[in-house]
Design a protein around this nucleic acid. Structure first.
Lengths: 263, 263
DNA sequence: TCAAAAGTGTTGGAACTACACCCATGA
DNA sequence: TCATGGGTGTAGTTCCAACACTTTTGA
């Protein structure tokens, strides 16, 4: 194509960042929370919005999403996946043509609950329960709903729940994650069998003591087994510096691949 | 955001267009085919590539994909869905920095088999069997593989197969579509029960005569029933002019929504 | 010894698969 | 009447939800 043709839109990358938090009021049961940033510029000034920013020159998309996440929370994503690209020409606020068109590539991410507890929550960053959000800027309420739906759907057939936990965990903790995300209780007996049959976790041989009941086994994530739904695309190392649990973070629905060009 | 910041990349939209064709050699069983265009410019000149082009100013993403499809084949999509956005900064060909960076938003689409038979296949447009492609430009082979995987996955839990057929069809025809896409035979009895139980089709009351066996019932697509996996997002009319079967084309994985802005 | 959660066993129902079998038409 | 696919019946299997029950700890 003509390389010097004028760009038809601004490119921005936003990220829906999910963490698990135990709300004090609701009695300790963890819930899905996410960080938002307060807008300090004109459209929707003062409103809360998804973290994000313009794509920098020479910066990979997933890297931009991870960087955004780090800037907002000081954390590193344990899981990162592209969600959707929003780019309709009609603008959300009334004034047409007043602001340049923006195409937003939205990612969603999971961060560990332990790290999230002491995440930075500065002046213009706030954490909210995902299913009780205020009115956000632009159509970000819809985007969060969509990301939540993806998280829930994916949790049921994939194995991403361990991204919220530490390296070793009990099956009860893993079940608690599932229950928090899905929003409903799960049968401990059946959950155990399902997880064990999937091969997603392996017992470490150690037990968690100090509880006032029978000590549960400690498991760790089985990274020798790929996601069952890995699909046809080749794996690729995530572009972000820390790639702890990210090695298996490429999704069936959305997998980063080498870039494509079009003339 | 700073509206006049310089753009960090070109924006292009490409489309993987699927149709069903009965190859003469293989004995009449339909297969998945797709149209490609031959590149006439420098990177990968002469190679086949996905149809696409730069996003025009003021043009919606899905509209651009549908326009691309129309330019290439003269057809109208029966189904259209966003696939993925490819935008890594590293370029496929060797010369770094020689060509401006391009971010490609890729859609995938289905077109009717009857229309596809007389689609335009001009000088630089060729049709290929989807699972027997030549070496394509850029990473388009991988993209097609991914789109194929999505088509197959989606066909199993969604109801998009009728997009290949006319308004009225027999269950055998519908099963033939499934078999062509999935690449394996299906039990007619069980297929019938599964489809009927899903409520995806309703009998018209008419029968197809002229066969040399018992005349099969003619069905039509039941558009009063939403996709079972519609998810939380509100439906939106597709932005393309002709929206025949597109009304239900929004997917669980990828649904167009109002645009998002980012500062 | 009791409360509480870990962990095991069992059962019934839903959904899917394979395949036998009858039905209706054209030749 | 026969070949051919349309269409129905049915038994076996697998998977999953529900729930009774046993085990092991701390208090």
């Amino acid at each position: 194509m003509a390389a010097h043709e004028h760009a038809s839109a601004m490119l921005a990358v936003s990220t829906v960042i999910f963490a698990l938090r135990s709300d004090e009021q609701t009695g300790g049961e963890p819930q899905v929370w996410l960080p938002l940033v307060r807008r300090i510029r004109d459209p929707y000034e003062g409103c809360w919005a998804l973290p994000g920013g313009p794509l920098r020159i020479g910066e990979d998309l997933a890297y931009a999403a991870a960087r955004t996440l780090g800037d907002t929370t000081g954390l590193t994503p344990r899981y990162l996946e592209q969600l959707y690209t929003f780019g309709d020409a009609v603008r959300s606020p009334g004034a047409p043509g007043s602001v340049e068109r923006v195409v937003s590539i939205v990612y969603w991410a999971l961060v560990g609950s332990a790290e999230a507890e002491q995440a930075t929550a500065g002046e213009n960053v706030g954490w909210f329960a995902a299913d009780d959000l205020p009115r956000l800027a632009f159509d970000h309420n819809v985007i969060v709903e969509y990301a939540l739906w993806r998280l829930r759907t994916k949790m049921e057939y994939s194995r991403i729940a361990h991204a919220f936990l530490g390296e070793r965990f009990t099956l009860a903790q893993l079940r608690e994650v599932h229950e928090a995300v899905l929003g409903r209780p799960l049968d401990p007996a059946n959950f155990r069998r399902t997880i064990e049959a999937s091969g997603a976790v392996v017992p470490t041989g150690d037990y968690l003591t100090g509880t006032r009941h029978r000590p549960p086994r400690l498991y760790r994530y089985n990274d020798s087994i790929d996601l069952a739904d890995a699909g046809p695309l080749p794996r690729q190392q995530p572009p972000y510096e820390s790639r702890q649990a990210l090695g298996s973070a490429q999704s069936p629905e959305q997998r980063p691949t080498p870039e494509s060009e079009q003339s």
